[in-house]
Design a protein around this nucleic acid. Structure first.
Lengths: 254, 254
DNA sequence: CGTTCCCTTGAGTAGTTTCAATACTTGTGG
DNA sequence: CCACAAGTATTGAAACTACTCAAGGGAACG
């Protein structure tokens, strides 16, 4: 089903895959694919869009990972992570200047979309709502992070982060069976979970000790996915791909 | 300046006040005011929109406060608070079903806007971008909460919450000189800061001891606002009302 | 005048941070 | 191919922060 989609839309074929993509027409998919004016491949940490800089384009993440970070008092905090198919800074189209930095992690392939073209595209109200929806998905993920930071200890937080990344990879057809591979290091996980790298190290050890997962240089090996998700209290509903919140035909109704 | 605006737009006159409102034409303001089909006054906790329920209208908060909550394992977590002028569940227009509950706090006045009318309204691309912007502001606030939960101890978290509410009230012309009055109780503050009511009680005592602010039955008295903001590490830039991120003429340019 | 909701306090336990020090890994230049 | 440097991962001990359980106090409202 989605292989044809990926062949036809090699740059944006994962955009909203598993979510609203089934509600998009072929014309709309083609149009979004055509929005990408230029693609680049980068390696190592590259700033896609820095806080406070006037944005004139947005970026589709085609391959690789991206972090959204805030630096305060010399320390870095991570407020989100992106996987392929994410229109990572689409919100800069309306905000114009972001409150955070958008930075690649490891090797990544990016597609640039000028705001001029986006302005044209949103003249179609249906397409506008699809793009709007995509930015609101980010906000839903933010809320889940807030809940989990309010609720969980460090061990469970990192377990939840793993579950989320894994599920998001699944949604766009990149999930593996036994875990995940990312360029993340322990310090990154710490910055995502609001803890120190030292404590994160102990948290990972505990995960391993309890047989929930083993993290070794960016790769997580999970013997029992359900056990990990249960431990973290992970419920993928907030990702709007499965479960009660998933969009059905209502979207076009009103 | 804004008094005339409030007279002319008694229901929606605070919408985006201090932010993008200066970039709206009189026609647009009138149009938004006319979106409100019905207003209601409620007292006590009232569910504006519950998680998972198909939304067919959105709600403008005209007076009072609203909380966004998530209930998990029998415990409530607060992921955001709204003040007058907030289009509290505008995001339900694109999401259709929310991942969280939207609940009034104390007495409140609400204005309902049907999604049918919103669909009409966003045929105007400029208006669509204004509404889009409003929902992205929420996301920016979410990110700040994430950073602060990752960064701060309970005492500083609650101080930050106070600073945020105060500043947001200022933006819509409702800020007081000496602090703020809300229907919040200590348990609410605890649920916002990811701590227990007992610990919140001790945190508030410490705030008082250090002369930063005294919280008594919903009212906060602050002798030195700058001291409180410094203590919390509060920087209002993320609210997009002042500072480097504030929207200038760029919005209409592209 | 009692009930209910909200606030307060103490003591013991669990989770996290900090500082200091030590290993392991990977890539680079000699 | 080895030695080194830089980045990453690991460990221990003491101090701090927050949680839980248990109990009591105070104000508001019928």
């Amino acid at each position: 089903m989605s292989q044809h989609d990926l062949d036809r839309h090699p740059l944006t074929g994962r955009f909203l895959m598993g979510r609203l993509r089934h509600g998009m027409t072929e014309d709309e998919k083609d149009l979004i694919e055509a929005l990408v004016e230029e693609t680049v491949t980068v390696s190592g940490p590259t700033v896609v869009l820095a806080r406070g800089v006037l944005a004139e384009r947005s970026t589709m993440l085609i391959e690789g990972y991206i972090l959204r970070t805030v630096t305060e008092n010399g320390r870095r905090y991570i407020v989100g992570i992106n996987v392929p198919g994410d229109f990572v800074d689409l919100h800069s189209f309306a905000l114009k200047r972001l409150d955070h930095d958008v930075i690649t992690l490891g090797d990544a392939r990016l597609g640039y979309v000028s705001h001029r073209r986006l302005s044209q595209a949103i003249r179609d109200p249906h397409l506008a709502r699809i793009l709007w929806f995509a930015t609101l998905l980010d906000a839903a993920v933010h809320r889940e992070w807030i809940v989990k930071l309010e609720q969980l200890t460090a061990v469970k937080r990192v377990a939840h982060v793993f579950c989320e990344i894994w599920h998001r990879l699944d949604l766009v057809g990149l999930g593996r069976r036994d875990g995940l591979r990312t360029p993340l290091i322990q310090a990154d996980l710490a910055d995502m979970c609001g803890t120190t790298a030292i404590h994160m190290n102990r948290a990972l050890r505990q995960l391993k000790k309890e047989g929930l997962g083993e993290f070794r240089r960016g790769a997580l090996y999970v013997p029992d996915r359900a056990a990990l998700e249960g431990f973290a209290g992970f419920d993928p509903t907030y990702l709007y791909g499965t479960g009660e919140l998933r969009l059905r035909d209502e979207f076009d109704a009103t």
